[in-house]
């Protein structure tokens, strides 16, 4: 528990983090902090550097430069203590296929030197928490994708971690399963657990994260709450017109942002009323007037990156 006592300030504090491989800069001067008790998201396309940052946080990837403290401890000098205090759900499920649901948790608890009786009690609680009560003694092979993912979360909680770290928690899962997992993560957050997750799903970030950073090509583009980012970069409302091959963007009022991506035209404005007149100009097209979302922010920011 010494790690816990030392912990003060931030759950994660990254300063000018750099990771270079032979011919590639995967993480380029990234700085951010995760506060205790918040759900923090790293949002970015595949290959943006999210997983590398995650690996650095869980002490699996030495820093090329910068400083990184997790639960108040330096990742380079205190990997063991840090790993005692975090729970990790990696991108790929890596349960023991030959063991039962319960034994997966018990075998894992041993690595944390949790006494057997405590571990058994905790394993049973967690199995209930992730709704796998009737699968306790089933082998992993018999579980569905969603069940395996829930068990991964239960396993990551076996050591009562201070931070739960999830790398793309719902990638490849069907919508019902995703909702169920989000529900569990929200429950954990409401209980005060610090959550750090990476995702390339905008809706996931928007629904789960108190704060987030958008990462692309190894750099942080922006950070803030989902609401702030949407208001700052995509205003409040968006009008989307699809299938506009070749046709030019309409001229608009100065407070409206107009953009083209592929064959779709986008208009962003602070109110829906400002966008409504434009709809009549797209009568022959598929149009959507909707609140703007993180995806708009993301596409706008990463496009600008590409153009720069």
């Amino acid at each position: 528990m010494s790690a816990r006592e030392k912990a003060s300030g931030f759950a994660v504090e990254a300063k000018d983090l750099i990771k270079e491989y032979d011919d590639l800069i995967a993480v380029n001067r990234v700085s951010f902090t995760v506060r205790y008790g918040e759900a923090f998201g790293m949002l970015g396309p595949n290959g943006a550097g999210k997983s590398t940052i995650m690996r650095m946080i869980i002490c699996r990837s030495p820093l090329t430069g910068g400083a990184l403290d997790v639960v108040g401890l330096d990742v380079t000098s205190h990997p063991r203590e840090i790993k005692e205090s975090v729970g990790v759900v990696p991108q790929e499920n890596n349960l023991d296929p030959d063991l039962t649901v319960r034994d997966n948790l018990l075998v894992y608890s041993r690595y944390f030197r949790i006494p057997r009786s405590v571990a058994e009690e905790r394993a049973d609680e967690l199995i209930e928490f992730v709704d796998l009560g009737d699968k306790r003694d089933s082998r992993i092979e018999t579980l569905s994708g969603g069940m395996k993912r829930r068990l991964m979360i239960a396993r990551a909680l076996i050591n009562n971690p201070m931070i739960l770290i999830l790398d793309e928690p719902t990638t490849g899962l069907d919508p019902h399963v995703r909702l169920a997992i989000w529900d569990k993560l929200r429950q954990l957050r409401d209980q005060g657990l610090t959550i750090l997750l990476s995702t390339h799903y905008m809706d996931e970030a928007e629904k789960l994260c108190d704060r987030l950073v958008i990462i692309d090509k190894g750099k942080i583009l922006v950070s803030g709450t989902p609401r702030e980012l949407i208001e700052r970069y995509a205003m409040h409302f968006a009008l989307e017109a699809r299938g506009c091959n070749g046709s030019p963007l309409k001229s608009t009022l100065p407070q409206i942002i107009a953009e083209r991506r592929g064959s779709t035209h986008f208009y962003f404005a602070p109110t829906a009323e400002l966008l409504a007149p434009l709809m009549s100009e797209y009568e022959d097209y598929e149009t959507y007037l909707r609140p703007s979302n993180l995806e708009d922010v993301f596409l706008r920011l990463t496009d600008q990156e590409g153009l720069a």
């Binding site: 990997p79 790993k83 990696p90 890596n94 349960l95 023991d96 894992y108 690595y111």
Partner: peptide
């Protein structure tokens, strides 16, 4: 194939 090493290395085991 089983990524068992990855799972183990997420615990205090080095």
């Amino acid at each position: 194939y089983q990524s068992t090493f990855d799972a183990v290395l997420c615990t205090p085991v080095e």
